[in-house]
Design a protein around this nucleic acid. Structure first.
Length: 427
RNA sequence: GGAGAGAUGGCCGAGAGGUUGAAGGCACUCGCCUGCUAAGCGAGUAAGGGGGUUUAAAGCCUCCUUCGAGGGUUCGAAUCCCUCUCUCUCCGCCA
């Protein structure tokens, strides 16, 4: 959420920042509303102050005095006026809140200006694309040949964009989750969390999914709960409403969770394979930091995610998103894109963002340095470390052999009972 | 799902219509005292918002709000009434 004070003092800067995201927003109305709010607030407070003072005197007064009765009537009228103004005030405040909740974050100054993904910046590439002596297949073909990915039965059980993983396919998901969690907890210092997969609307508002993106989520209306689209939601909101001890920052959390997305409006994109599913596994990384350390922490967060790809020996590149491609809550985002030889393309497999105080302001996550001083908003960061389904796809495509079998990456073998090669399953 | 009890500051806990933003304790901070430690003595320690002061921040001054959330009664509500949420105990159900 945008800081109203910042907007008040830098209206032109804010306008320009939104424009760089492709959002035309007239700040004038909001500022006028804010001015009106402060005017009425001043009036209400003055009246309340008067009422409080007189009421306190009543405590000592004789209740039968004529003066008391007259004054009492007067205060009654003032109270009516107050409640009238309060109603107006809360309407204005709601309108302001509503507007602010629907505005995206401001891009960081290091983010390149650009209108869409074509203007994203390549930061670095890693790994060598393998030379195939045969035509590499896309992962859905390999999955079918091996009998480890079943799209028809997924659609039968639920609907399209649901897939059943069988045998080594299911095992591969589990092995990857275990491998990633072990890496992040044992070597990168993250605390493992197993959070609720259903959360309430307040939590969804804290990280920015609501009110704007309700359509993208599965919602259980009976209970007012949403299925999480990413573990970023419960992890970041863990400390919602809290004032943390500055000495404990940064906090680093990791969680494996299934993620649920309705993918409304993505018809026709990635319709084949397991790249875009309604339900997928992901290991998420979240950091809660002081403002002055958040950009260093973003770099190391990206490194933590990259390490997974390096150990799996999957070629990838790091992309810095331009202003026009930036997510709603993010001030700066790096995407990791893994090489998919079967589809001859790079595909996003991780997205690492610094949300600065955007989510912290919504979720009221603050910290205090020692005894003295005011609470300050923390910065929140999140990144995939990694999307598990897409990692499976990348392994199938990068490690495929001419006979249709797939070599198991070395680091995963201990997690697969020593399995070195996935061969066709007798179905 | 049924019955009952409860929700107060960083924590524990008093408070039952009127200078109570809230006794007391614990914890913490600063000072004093003391070979060290412990104890003792003194002072202090909630958050949000508006306005003022300041180049700005910090700080300071001032006002308002907040005792789970929302609404009501009243000149005045932590205290009375209603609704909701959550926690605990017992019963039922259940992996």
């Amino acid at each position: 959420m945008l800081d109203l004070k910042f907007l008040r003092e830098n209206p032109e800067e804010v306008k320009k920042a939104f424009l760089s995201r492709g959002l035309e927003f007239e700040v004038g109305d909001l500022l006028a509303l804010d001015e009106k709010r402060r005017r009425i607030l001043g009036e209400v407070e003055g009246l309340r102050s008067y009422r409080n003072r007189v009421s306190r005197e009543f405590a000592k007064a004789k209740f039968e005095d004529k003066e008391f009765l007259v004054e009492k009537e007067k205060i009654r009228e003032i109270s009516e006026k107050i409640s009238h103004l309060e109603k107006e005030l809360s309407q204005i405040e709601e309108e302001i809140e509503n507007t602010l909740l629907n505005l995206p974050n401001l891009p960081h100054s290091s983010v390149p200006i650009g209108k869409d993904e074509t203007e994203n910046q390549l930061i670095r590439s890693w790994g060598k694309k393998r030379d195939f002596s045969f035509e590499p297949l896309p992962h859905w073909e390999i999955g079918k040949i091996l009998g480890i990915l079943d799209f028809e039965r997924g659609a039968k059980l639920a609907k399209s964009r649901f897939t059943v993983s069988m045998g080594a396919g299911a095992q591969l998901e589990r092995a990857l989750i275990q491998f990633m969690l072990d890496l992040h907890t044992k070597e990168h210092g993250y605390v493992e969390v197993w959070p609720p997969l259903l959360v309430n609307s307040q939590t969804m508002t804290g990280t920015g999914q609501l009110p704007k993106f309700g359509e993208d989520m599965f919602f259980c209306s009976e209970d007012g709960l949403y299925l999480i689209p990413t573990a970023e939601v419960p992890l970041t909101n863990l400390h919602a409403g809290e004032i943390l001890d500055g000495n404990q920052l940064p906090l680093k959390y990791t969680a494996y969770t299934p993620c649920f997305r309705r993918e409304a409006g993505s018809y026709g994109r990635d319709t084949r394979g397991i790249i875009r599913q309604h339900q997928f596994n992901k290991v998420e990384l979240v950091k809660i930091t002081k403002p002055e350390q958040s950009y260093d922490e973003l770099e190391s967060l990206v490194g933590d995610a990259e390490e997974v790809l390096k150990r799996l020996e999957l070629p990838y590149r790091v992309i810095l998103l331009c202003t026009g491609d930036l997510g709603f809550s993010s001030a700066k985002t790096y995407d990791l894109e893994v090489w998919l030889p079967g589809e001859n393309t790079y595909k996003e497999i991780s997205s690492c963002s610094n949300c600065e105080d955007f989510q912290a302001r919504r979720a009221k996550i603050r910290y205090k340095e020692g005894q003295a001083g005011k609470p300050r908003l923390v910065h929140t960061l999140n990144g995939s470390g990694l999307a598990v389904g897409r990692t499976v796809a990348a392994i199938l495509e990068n490690y495929q052999e001419a006979d249709g079998s797939v070599i198991v990456p070395e680091v995963l073998r201990p997690y697969m009972g020593g399995l070195k090669k996935i061969v066709s399953r007798e179905s």
